[in-house]
């Protein structure tokens, strides 16, 4: 029983980290209509900045720089590239982001090389025990931070002029623009927010039990795509639900791999999120909490 509980807690805390990334996908998509395939690289970039800077300036300042750096990369991608597409539509924007991802990821991979960079996080490889259930300390911190982050997002989107403006811009850009909302500002805010969330998620994805900052992190950030799609393309609460669902699924499938492998094969944990995604899309093409009007194609 405690093994089961441990897997569930593991899955939920991992799912919360995924939902940070998934929320980044959702925010960029609602604010600019872009399917951001470079998001995984931005996650890696944030974690890379922290890993490189923490020996000289300490972990917390490095984390701030990482968040700012990832936000800046997002804003630059939007202002320098996305807004200058020769043929702006969701399809070409998605392919543009694949190009950006190739460049960013190749350059980061070259810089990191075969090394695995350490993060210098204060929680290190500590383990927290609740009775006979143990959980990595990084995951516990991650769960707390994620809850705070989503509370902040809720406050932003429902109680501040900027956040309400972003929602208005997502619902109907031209009308929002006529009402005096600056679309360039809401778009930049969306990309910056996604970048900040990506850097935070990157730190948690690379802390214990993960070995450290390595190029494969960008690929594990890919696992947030099913979470985002599951929840609904335009829904931040959907990202949380999707993240938890995917985290739980992959933790349980991996945790009980010995029992499942005769009929599912080894390594099904990596595939399970995508299988769940395809099944949900079959039943609900716009995700669990996505709104139908959000179809922007």
């Amino acid at each position: 029983m405690s093994y089961f509980l441990e897997q569930v807690l593991n899955g939920l805390s991992y799912g919360l980290v995924l939902s940070l990334i998934a929320a980044g996908f959702a925010i960029v998509f609602t604010s600019t209509g872009v399917l951001n395939f470079a998001h995984g690289s931005i996650v890696l970039f944030g974690a890379y900045l922290v890993a490189v800077l923490h020996p000289t300036i300490g972990f917390w300042p490095a984390l701030l720089v990482g968040m700012a750096g990832a936000a800046l990369v997002g804003v630059l991608i939007n202002t320098l590239l996305v807004r200058h597409l020769a043929d702006p539509n969701p399809g070409t924007a998605a392919i543009l982001m694949l190009g950006v991802d190739i460049v960013l990821l190749t350059e980061l991979t070259r810089r990191i090389g075969n090394k695995v960079l350490t993060l210098g996080a204060p929680w290190g490889a500590d383990v927290v025990r609740f009775g006979d259930v143990s959980l990595p300390a990084g995951r516990v911190v991650a769960a707390g931070v994620t809850v705070v982050a989503f509370a902040g997002l809720w406050y932003l989107f429902s109680r501040t002029d900027l956040g309400v403006g972003m929602r208005a811009a997502a619902a109907d850009g031209p009308t929002a623009s006529l009402m005096g909302i600056r679309l360039s500002r809401t778009a930049a805010t969306g990309w910056a927010l996604a970048g900040v969330l990506a850097a935070v998620a990157g730190v948690f994805l690379t802390s214990f039990p993960a070995p450290g900052v390595a190029p494969t992190v960008a690929l594990s950030a890919f696992a947030a795509i099913p979470a985002w799609v599951l929840g609904g393309f335009d829904s931040v609460p959907g990202a949380v639900v999707g993240g938890l669902l995917i985290g739980l699924t992959s933790a349980l499938v991996t945790g009980y791999e010995g029992d499942l492998s005769p009929f599912l094969g080894t390594g099904f944990g990596e595939v399970a999120p995508y299988v769940v995604m395809i099944v949900v899309l079959l039943v609900r093409p716009s995700g669990l909490l996505g709104s139908k009007e959000a179809v922007r194609v």
Binding site: L35, A94, I225, V271, I278, P285, V297
Partner: peptide, 20 residues
């Protein structure tokens, strides 16, 4: 049933499933 980038995301899953 899906179109455009939504189909792109669904087909993303195929690569992983087939590889598995």
């Amino acid at each position: 049933r899906l179109r455009g980038i939504y189909l792109g995301l669904a087909t993303l899953g195929l690569v992983f499933v087939v590889r598995h």
